Amino acid sequence: MATPCTHLDHIQSVTPSSTGCEECQQTGDSWVHLRICRTCGHVGCCDSSKNKHATKHFHATNHPVIQSFEPGEDWLWCYVDQIFLQPTNQ
């Protein structure tokens, strides 16, 4: 049986901080896929991107849950519990 996520209370209804990776846009860099922080709305690039800004945001803020910000993808990830989650209507 999978261990449940213990950070569901951190998931908020958020407004995206950007339409692309916030940091990559500032430096003129590129990304592969986007993730949105479900605590504050920060949009960062995924770990397949060279800069890994979504994970860097987690390490800087301890905001535990991200969601894919890609069209057609509907999943969340908890960095702390290392578990994929299905979104609920929020």
Rank of each mutant, 00 (worst) to 15 (best):
Q82F: 05
Y79F: 15
T39E: 09
F84M: 15
N51E: 04
T6A: 11
G28Y: 10
I36E: 11
L76F: 13
N89W: 00
H33S: 01
N62P: 00
Q90S: 02
W31E: 05
D81R: 00
L85E: 04
H59K: 14
S68E: 10
Q26N: 11
S17H: 04
P64Q: 03
H33D: 02
V43F: 10
S49C: 12
E22L: 15
P4E: 03
S17P: 14
H63C: 11
W77G: 03
A60S: 13
S49W: 00
H57Y: 06
V65I: 15
A60I: 05
P16W: 11
T61E: 14
G28F: 13
P16T: 06
T88A: 10
L8M: 14
R38V: 10
E70I: 06
D29S: 15
P16H: 08
E73W: 13
V43C: 08
C21T: 06
F69I: 09
S30K: 05
I66Q: 00
F84L: 15
T61S: 15
V14F: 07
G44W: 02
R35A: 15
G41N: 01
T15Y: 11
L8P: 12
T19L: 11
E73A: 02
H63P: 09
G41L: 04
S48L: 12
I11L: 03
Q67C: 15
G44Q: 01
Y79T: 04
V65M: 07
N62T: 05
P4R: 01
T61M: 15
D81W: 08
A60R: 07
I11T: 02
P87W: 02
H33I: 00
Y79R: 02
G20K: 11
Q25M: 11
A54M: 05
C37E: 05
S68W: 02
G44R: 08
E70H: 10
N62R: 07
T6R: 10
K50V: 13
H33G: 00
H33A: 03
D29A: 15
G44V: 12
E70Y: 09
I36S: 04
S30W: 03
Q82D: 14
S49H: 08
S48G: 09
S68H: 07
N89P: 08
L8R: 14
S18P: 05
P87T: 03
H53R: 01
F58K: 07
T3Y: 13
W77T: 08
C5F: 13
Q82E: 15
A54P: 00
A60L: 09
T3K: 15
S18N: 09
H33E: 03
Q86N: 12
P71R: 07
N51M: 14
S13V: 14
L76M: 15
L76N: 11
I11H: 07
C46W: 01
C40W: 10
L34S: 05
D29T: 09
K50R: 05
S17V: 14
H57F: 04
H33F: 09
V14Y: 13
L85M: 13
